[in-house]
Design a binder for these strands. Structure first.
Length: 419
RNA sequence: GGAGAGAUGGCUGAGCGGUUGAAAGCACCGGUCUUGAAAACCGGCAACGGGGCAACUCGUUCGUGAGUUCGAAUCUCACUCUCUCCGCCA
C-alpha cells in the first residue's frame, strides 16, 4: 500500500516507479480523487462541528428545562447535508483505495532495470560446479530408480503436481528441515514459530497476495486459505500492532507446507518435483526499523546462503530486475542452486525487502520517542526444502545410483552416510 | 453442534444517552532524591485523518456494519471473534 502523501509530493517519481513495474501513469487520477475527497471532508467536518455545537446547546437548554426547538430544527437541516457529504466521501475513499491496493511496491534505487528474468544481474556466486566421472542424472531419475520417489501414487491421490516420498528420502526431507531450523534458531538469531497453515483473507491482504493474486492460491472454504508461504502467517504476527522499539529487530522462522495453484505455469516444469502444488519450506521473516532494512536484507541473504555453504553446494545470487520482482518487494535477491542433472541454476530461495509496503497494509507500527512509525518487513526462504532435496540428490549422487549424505546432515540422518 | 458470558487506550480495567477521548492501575517517557541503581514522590503519555508555515484547531474512532436520537462507549438489530460449561473428538 502506498503513502498518499508521497504521491502528493512526488507524482512524477511515483509514475516513473510504476512504469518500471509495468503500470500506467496514474498519479493524476489518484490526486484528482484525493482532492475531491479532501475538499468534501473539509466541508463535511465544518458542518459536523456546527452540529456538535448545537447539540451541546440543546443539552444545556434541556437540562435547564428551556425550549430548544429552534436548535433542533437547525440540526435536522444539517443532517441532510451531512448524509450526502458522507456518501460522497465514502465513494471517493473507496475509489482511491481500490487503486492504491492494487499497485506494486516502488523498487529500491539499487534495483536494476529490466523486464524479465533475463535482465537479472549476478550479485555473487559461491563454490563451483562439481565434476562427475559419469553423466549425472536428474533428481527424479535417481529417486525413481531406487523406488523412493513416486509420482504415480501422488497422481492417484491428488492429481498432477504432487509427489510421494518414501523411506530414506522422506527421512532426508525431515533431516534437511531440522538442520535448517537448528541453524537459523541457534546461529542466525531467528525465533521458531509453529503457525497455522490456513489463514483468512485479511492476512493475505496484509502481505499482498490479495486482492490481485487470488488465482494463485488454494481455498478451504469459508474464509480459510492455504498459505502459499509461511511469510503470510509470520509477517501477519505484527498486523495491527504497535511494537515497542526494543522488540525490534524481530526475526522469526517457521517450517511449513506451502500450497500454490501454479495457475500461470501450465506446461512448465511438469517432470519431477521442482514445481508442485504442495511443498515444504523454512521461511525467514524480519521486522525492523526503516533505517535497518537495507542491511537486514543483506543479513537475511547471508543466513539463507549459510545453509547451502554448510551443505557445500554451488550456487549463485541474482539481483532481480524491477520487472521480475514480486508485488510487495522493494528489492529481491534470488539464490539459484546448481543442479548438475539438469545442468541449470534453479531458484531455491528468494529474499525480499518490502520496506513499509506490507506494514501499511497491515497497519504494523512501532513506537519511537512517543511517535508511531510503520515497520519495515522482509522475508526470505531459508530454504525451500523440496528443492534442497533435489539439489542434494543431484549434487551428491554417485555412479552406482546411491547418494551421499552431506556431512552436516549425517547427525540428523541417524549417522548414516549414504541414502 | 447445544447453553451462557463478554469484546473499552501498549496491557489490565471503570464507565447514569448530553465537557467521557473516556476513571484507576500497570507499562513507558521526563523530573526530584541517590555516588549509581532501585524504591518513593511529582509531571507527562491513545490512534487516524482534515485545515494551518506554526502555536494550534477541527473531525472520526470504545470488536465490525447498519439503525434509533437534536446528541450513542452507553439503546436496537445483524455479523465477527473470545471465554466458560455440555456434547463430539486428534
Amino acid at each position: 500500500m502506498h503513502n498518499i502523501n508521497y504521491i502528493r509530493e512526488n507524482p512524477t517519481e511515483f509514475d516513473n516507479a510504476m512504469k518500471l513495474r509495468g503500470e500506467k501513469s496514474i498519479s493524476t487520477k489518484i490526486l484528482e480523487i484525493d482532492k475531491v475527497k479532501r475538499e468534501t471532508q473539509t466541508v463535511l467536518q465544518n458542518i459536523l462541528s456546527e452540529r456538535n455545537k448545537l447539540s451541546k446547546e440543546i443539552g444545556n437548554l434541556k437540562s435547564k428545562n428551556k425550549d430548544a426547538n429552534e436548535q433542533i430544527s437547525k440540526v435536522e437541516e444539517l443532517k441532510i447535508k451531512i448524509n450526502s457529504l458522507k456518501e460522497l466521501e465514502n465513494i471517493k475513499e473507496n475509489e482511491l483505495n481500490s487503486i492504491l491496493i492494487r499497485l506494486p511496491n516502488i523498487p529500491h534505487k539499487s534495483v536494476p532495470n529490466g523486464k524479465d528474468e533475463s535482465d537479472n544481474l549476478l550479485y555473487r556466486e559461491w563454490g563451483s560446479k562439481p565434476e562427475f566421472s559419469f553423466s549425472p542424472k536428474l533428481h527424479y531419475e535417481i529417486g525413481e530408480n531406487i523406488g523412493l520417489i513416486n509420482f504415480e501414487y501422488a497422481t492417484k491421490l491428488s492429481g498432477s503436481r504432487f509427489v510421494t516420498l518414501k523411506n530414506q528420502i522422506s527421512k532426508l526431507e525431515r533431516s534437511i528441515s531440522n538442520f535448517m531450523l537448528d541453524k537459523h534458531t541457534e546461529e542466525n538469531g531467528y525465533v521458531e514459530y509453529s503457525v497455522p497453515f490456513l489463514v483468512k483473507k485479511e492476512s493475505l491482504f496484509g502481505t499482498g497476495q490479495l486482492p490481485k493474486f487470488g488465482e494463485d492460491l488454494f481455498t478451504a472454504g469459508d474464509d480459510h486459505w492455504l498459505i502459499p508461504t509461511a511469510e503470510v502467517p509470520l509477517t501477519n504476527l505484527v498486523r495491527n500492532e504497535i511494537l515497542n522499539i526494543n522488540q525490534l529487530p524481530m526475526r522469526s522462522t517457521s517450517y511449513t507446507p506451502c500450497f500454490r495453484s501454479e495457475a500461470g505455469a501450465a506446461g512448465k516444469d511438469t517432470r519431477g518435483m521442482l514445481r508442485q502444488h504442495q511443498f515444504t519450506k523454512v521461511e525467514l521473516v524480519s521486522v525492523v526499523e526503516p533505517h535497518q532494512s537495507d542491511d537486514e536484507l543483506e543479513r537475511m541473504l547471508t543466513c539463507a546462503e549459510s545453509i547451502l555453504k554448510d551443505l557445500n553446494i554451488h550456487y549463485r545470487v541474482m539481483t532481480l530486475c524491477n520487472g521480475d520482482m514480486g508485488f510487495s518487494a522493494k528489492k529481491t535477491y534470488d539464490i539459484e542452486v546448481w543442479l548438475p542433472g539438469e545442468g541449470k541454476y534453479r531458484e531455491i530461495s528468494s529474499c525480499s525487502n518490502c520496506g513499509d509496503f506490507q506494514a501499511r497494509r497491515m497497519n504494523a507500527r512501532y513506537k519511537n520517542e512517543d511517535k508511531n512509525f510503520f515497520v519495515h518487513t522482509l522475508n526470505g526462504s531459508g530454504l525451500a526444502v523440496g528443492r534442497t532435496l533435489i539439489a542434494i540428490l543431484e549434487n551428491y549422487q554417485m555412479e552406482d545410483g546411491n547418494v551421499e549424505i552431506p556431512e552436516v546432515l549425517i547427525k540428523y540422518f541417524n549417522n548414516k552416510t549414504l541414502l
